[in-house]
Design a protein around this nucleic acid. Structure first.
Lengths: 153, 153
DNA sequence: CGATATTAGTTGATAAAGTCATCTTATTTT
DNA sequence: AAAATAAGATGACTTTATCAACTAATATCG
C-alpha cells in the first residue's frame, strides 16, 4: 500500500470527530463552538496563560484568538488580569464557572473519545496517539529545513 | 494513560495537515480550496458519480457540494452529464483539464504525505490508517444504536 | 390512472471560522 | 529620546458549512 490515501483517512476522521464532538456538546446543552472550548481548555491548563500562548500553541491567528478570548470573557468563563510584569499583556484565568464548564467538557470529551475508540484496544489508542503526535511535529518543522537521510533517520 | 488527550492530538494533526496541504498546493500555483480538490478527486475516482454520491461519501451538506460542483464546472475541471436513467440526476465527469489537475494534486498529496509520514515506518503508517479508519467507522454509527458487548466485539 | 411521497439538485440567508491589514499601547533596543 | 518590536484589538473580508425552502423528476400506492 502506498501512503496515498492518508489524505482521505485524515479528512474523514477529522470530520467524524468534529461532528461527534459538536453533537455531544449540544446534547449537553453547552452552547459554545469547538474553538472556544479548546481555548478555554488551554487557559485552564496553561499556567500564566496569555492570548499569545494560546495563539502560538494552537497555531492560530492572533485575531481569531483575541475574538474567542473576548467572547469567553463576555460569557463569564474567564477573566483578564493585567500581567504584573508587562502591561501590554494579560493573564487569562478561568472563573469558577469556567472551571465548572471545563469539568463538564472533560466528561463530554471522555464520552466521545470512549465512543470513537471503543473498537480499539488500549495499546492501539496509545499507538495512534504517538504516531499522530509524530506527524504533527513533523508538519511543524520548517519546510526549508529539508531533513536529509542523515537526519531523517 | 487515559484516552483523554485524543481530542488535542486530533485537532493538532488536523490543522497541521490542512495547513501543509494548502501551503504546498499554493506553492504549486494551484488556486483551489481543499474541499474542491477532494470533490474533484472523488469525481475522478467514483464510477458513475453523482453529486449525491459525493455528498454522502464526504458526509457533507448537499448544498455545499452543489456549490463546489458548480464551481468546478465553471473552472472547466468537470462536466455534468444528464443521467441516462434518471433525469433528476447528473453524472459528474472530469474533463481533460480535470484529469491533468488531478495528477498534479496526486503529486502534491504524495509530497505532503511523504513529509508528514517521513518519521514513520511503513508499518506505522499502515497501522495508523487502519486505526483511523476504524474510528471513523465507529463515529458514523448511529449513536442511538449503542453497540453492546455482543456486537462491539 | 392520479394524488402523494420521495429524491436529486439548486438557491438564498445565515452562521461560523479564519485571515489580513492596521491601529493602539507598552516595552525593548540603541 | 527615537526607532524597533511585541501584545493585543478591531474592521473588513473570505471561506466553509448549515438550514430551509424551492423546482423538477421519479416512485409509490390507493
Amino acid at each position: 500500500m502506498s501512503p496515498r490515501p492518508l489524505s482521505d483517512t485524515l479528512h474523514k476522521l477529522m470530520h467524524a470527530y468534529r461532528r461527534l464532538m459538536l453533537e455531544t456538546i449540544r446534547e449537553q446543552g453547552i452552547d459554545l463552538p469547538i474553538t472556544h472550548i479548546r481555548v478555554l481548555k488551554g487557559i485552564c491548563r496553561i499556567e500564566e496563560c496569555t492570548a499569545h500562548h494560546i495563539a502560538s500553541q494552537m497555531r492560530r491567528d492572533r485575531a481569531q484568538i483575541a475574538r474567542v478570548v473576548s467572547e469567553l470573557v463576555k460569557n463569564g468563563l474567564i477573566m483578564k488580569v493585567t500581567h504584573p510584569q508587562d502591561r501590554r499583556s494579560q493573564l487569562l484565568e478561568p472563573t469558577e464557572a469556567g472551571l465548572q464548564l471545563r469539568e463538564r467538557l472533560d466528561q463530554v470529551e471522555e464520552a466521545v473519545t470512549q465512543r470513537l475508540t471503543s473498537p480499539l484496544t488500549a495499546d492501539e489508542i496509545e499507538i495512534f496517539e504517538k504516531i499522530a503526535g509524530r506527524m504533527t511535529e513533523q508538519a511543524a518543522l520548517d519546510p526549508t529545513h529539508r531533513p536529509t537521510e542523515k537526519e531523517a533517520g
